[in-house]
């Protein structure tokens, strides 16, 4: 991870937008109304249908530079420990929203302080896994592509 020269007290507001395509559909493994949304605590918010043509999930974070040059993130949606923060997108059946079916883990720890200075980060996410089912776990680079001008990370 690269390290920057910004000052040690700095806090940066950052908007992260996930542009999601290639949805699996509403039916999956006995579930008739598959949906996906941000995971927050033990609930799901901002859900969209599993057969969406395109969906956009946006969240506002605060990024804080740490003394070792790495970045920490804070918001009600941020999960995980310092140095391994991530966001969850959670698949669930609308008939049983309290029972998550699968989760997509969107890692944040790979974003550098310098890359966050634009205040706006966009990523493209394919929502079907290699077998065509709802994407789960940490996406491979083929499925999650950060759109950052300062690097070619595809």
């Amino acid at each position: 991870m690269s390290k920057s020269t910004a000052n040690a007290l700095a806090v940066q507001p950052v908007t992260i937008t996930l542009i999601c395509t290639d949805f699996p559909g509403r039916a999956f493994d006995g579930c008739a109304d598959l949906q996906v949304g941000w995971g927050q605590d033990r609930t799901v918010i901002n859900a969209v249908p599993g057969d969406s043509i395109e969906a956009r999930f946006t969240t506002e974070l605060q990024a804080k530079q740490r003394p070792d040059g790495t970045v920490d993130f804070r918001s009600p949606l941020v999960q995980g420990k310092v140095g391994a923060r991530f966001l969850y997108l959670v698949w669930f059946d609308a008939a049983a929203p309290q029972m998550p079916i699968r989760r997509i883990k969107v890692p944040l720890h790979d974003l550098t302080w310098d890359e966050l200075q634009s205040g706006q980060i966009v990523a493209h996410l394919q929502m079907r896994g290699p077998d065509g089912s709802p994407l789960a776990a940490t996406p491979k680079p083929s499925h999650l592509q950060w759109q950052i001008e300062s690097r070619s990370k595809h």
């Binding site: 918010i45 901002n46 249908p49 969406s52 395109e54 969240t59």
Partner: peptide
């Protein structure tokens, strides 16, 4: 506002903010 989501299938659209 700390998060939002919006998606559309062929015959419906849903958008929300938290």
């Amino acid at each position: 506002v700390y998060s939002s989501g919006a998606g559309s299938s062929g015959d419906s659209f849903e958008a929300s903010i938290s």
